[in-house]
């Protein structure tokens, strides 16, 4: 699994200017690698700047110091090699599910025939084949996120960035979506970076967890869930019962607690 790096975050800091000469440091000296074809989860308490890091990877924010490198090039603004899925629904309401999924390919000049085939493939992959021709407003929240995921994947990015993608969904839908993502990762070999504050989600999805401390965000620990023995398991019930699951959950909980206390 561990090949070269798809994405390297090198000593990245981000300060936000608050005006009147004041500023706040959101993240500081962040360094980690995202290996090719791996799922990396950015985990940490709220306010640790994990979304800021993801947005800098996407090119939607600019680092104040340091650099982010993809395929040997420094990231400079958003581009199709880094697709992003947001927590808020981003379906284009005026387009059918199919047209939504084709959107990225269309603006990038992919020929119509290939576009249609590719869209068909990814709509099937996320299980929306029965809904290909309806408008997103007729879909549930979980299904809309499936549209967003299919739309991003169909555009063939090097890395899929997801910012708390299932945060707005109810528990059982979230669970299904997490299992879907493991399947998608296995079938498409897509490199993923997922931001979450949900311990279970992190343990279930991650090949590697990057735990961040808060105020300012720094990398506190990099954790590879050893109990999965380098395998991906797409059944959450199975994962929860594996030896070592609860140890890791306990450890992460402890880290979260430590960060929480630091605030008081």
């Amino acid at each position: 699994m561990a090949n070269g790096s798809a994405l390297e975050i090198r000593n990245v800091s981000k300060r936000f200017d608050l005006g009147k000469g004041r500023s706040v440091t959101a993240v500081e000296g962040i360094t980690f690698n995202v290996e090719q074809n791996s799922i990396v989860v950015l985990l940490g308490p709220s306010g640790c700047g994990k979304s800021t890091i993801l947005r800098m990877m996407a090119g939607l924010e600019t680092p104040s110091a340091g650099e982010i490198v993809i395929g040997g090039r420094t990231v400079d603004g958003p581009a199709r090699d880094r697709g992003m899925v947001f927590q808020a629904y981003t379906s284009f309401d005026w387009l059918s599910v199919r047209k939504n999924v084709e959107f990225g390919m269309k603006i990038n000049g992919v020929p119509a025939a290939k576009r249609r085939a590719q869209a068909e493939h990814f709509i099937k992959l996320v299980g929306l084949e029965k809904f290909a021709d309806v408008y997103p407003s007729q879909l549930s929240g979980g299904m809309r996120q499936r549209v967003a995921i299919a739309r991003t994947l169909a555009n063939d990015p090097e890395v899929l960035l997801m910012d708390e993608p299932f945060g707005a969904l109810d528990a059982e839908t979230r669970w299904l979506m997490q299992e879907l993502m493991v399947n998608v990762a296995e079938q498409t070999n897509t490199t993923m970076v997922i931001v979450t504050h949900d311990l279970e989600e992190a343990i279930f999805l991650a090949d590697k967890i990057v735990f961040l401390s808060s105020h300012p965000g720094r990398v506190k620990e990099e954790i590879r869930p050893a109990f999965k023995a380098g395998k991906r398991i797409d059944d959450k019930e199975v994962v929860i019962k594996l030896d070592g699951y609860s140890d890791l959950e306990g450890h992460l909980m402890h880290l979260m607690r430590e960060e929480g206390r630091g605030l008081e």
Binding site: G59, L60, P78, R80, F86, D93, F103, G104, I107, T152
Partner: peptide, 25 residues
């Protein structure tokens, strides 16, 4: 903003974002 940012991360340039996302929205 998320609609605009989605389009940007799909590879849209400014003109495309205005014509294909902001205007229809």
């Amino acid at each position: 903003e998320e609609l605009v940012e989605t389009a940007l991360t799909l590879g849209a340039n400014r003109g495309t974002v205005v014509m294909k996302v902001i205007f229809p929205a």
